[in-house]
Simulated assay, not measured.
Amino acid sequence: MLTLRNIDIHHGRIHAVKRASLHVRPGEIVALIGGNGAGKTSTLTTISGLHRPSGGEIVLDGRDITRAAPDAIVRLGLSHVPEGRKVFKPMRVEDNLQLGAYHRWGRRQRAAIAQDLDAVYTMFPVLHSRRTQAAGTLSGGEQQMLAIGRALMARPRMLLLDEPSMGLAPQVSREIFRHIRELRDRFGLTVLVVEQNARMALRVADRGYVLETGRIILQGPSEELLENRDVQRAYLGRDLDAE
């Protein structure tokens, strides 16, 4: 469904990602793990058109989107849940959700948008109970649910999730990752998730890639990466063994 071929990403003189190649098949959950500054967020923002690569090719469903605008990429079925949630804090929860369907507004789409809103509320009941509140009054976990719900309102076929557990308590993080699995198992979405909590990401993913200083150094089934001693030493850590 999604293929990156030899992608180079620069931020000024900084070569953030170096000839990275990866693929995500329809219906897969794929994890991209690595430390701070590895280039994970740069990879996602480049896929979604927020940053232009300096080389390489990005293909979505056989269509070259390397130079496509972000709104065009959303219309092609790819939604991005950014690092730090980026909800519109002064606005009501429901208004945030409806903004996710901005490209679908029109008389013919009103019923479908209302239906999708109900589906989001079914998946995240807490958002329904807080629908008239300002988004900034929600907890971190609730804001993450809101960010995912907003992305779902675009009716995507694929989601990019950037650090969904960032700043969340362990129990809340586990709940968010249960929802990520539900997005695939119940709704058939394809997911590429960037995450520093490597163990949690690999447990929910089918396959994974390890990005280190801008280069993909390892890839394979999640079970193999979880058992890889280099991955354990660098990214899993003894403090996560009790999870």
Rank of each mutant, 00 (worst) to 15 (best):
D239R: 04
A68E: 10
G149D: 02
A134I: 01
L78C: 14
M145R: 00
L192G: 12
R233N: 07
Y121Q: 06
R233I: 00
M158Q: 03
I65R: 14
A112V: 15
E94R: 06
Q219F: 11
V193Y: 09
R75D: 03
L211G: 05
E195R: 10
P170L: 05
T43R: 06
H51L: 15
W105V: 12
L78W: 10
A112M: 13
G49N: 11
A205P: 07
G55S: 10
Y102M: 14
A31Q: 08
V81A: 02
Q98A: 13
G62L: 11
I29K: 01
R107S: 13
V24C: 09
Q133L: 09
A112S: 13
N6R: 15
F187H: 15
L240K: 11
R104C: 08
E83N: 13
D162Y: 04
R150A: 00
I29V: 15
H80A: 10
N197L: 08
N96W: 00
V231H: 01
V193N: 08
E243T: 05
V30D: 03
M91F: 15
S222N: 02
R155C: 05
Q144M: 05
R186C: 14
L117M: 07
A147H: 00
H103I: 13
E195A: 10
G49I: 10
T3Y: 04
D241I: 14
W105K: 14
Q115R: 15
L2E: 10
G149W: 01
R130E: 05
G62Q: 04
R181N: 10
G141D: 02
Y102A: 15
L189F: 09
L78N: 14
L97E: 02
A134C: 03
P90F: 08
T137D: 00
L22V: 03
S21Q: 10
T122F: 06
D118I: 09
L146W: 00
L22C: 07
R52P: 14
T46I: 09
I33Q: 00
V17E: 08
I217Q: 02
P70Q: 11
Q232E: 13
L50T: 08
R229N: 07
N6T: 08
M1T: 14
Q143C: 02
I9Q: 06
M91S: 08
P70G: 10
G100P: 01
A16R: 03
L225T: 01
Y209N: 05
L226V: 00
A154E: 01
I113K: 11
V191L: 08
V172L: 02
P221K: 06
I7K: 07
Q232R: 11
Y209E: 02
R155V: 00
E182S: 15
L211V: 12
R130S: 03
R5P: 00
R150Y: 01
D116I: 03
A147S: 02
A242K: 15
A147E: 02
T190P: 09
L226T: 01
G237D: 04
G34R: 09
Q143W: 04
H23K: 09
D185W: 06
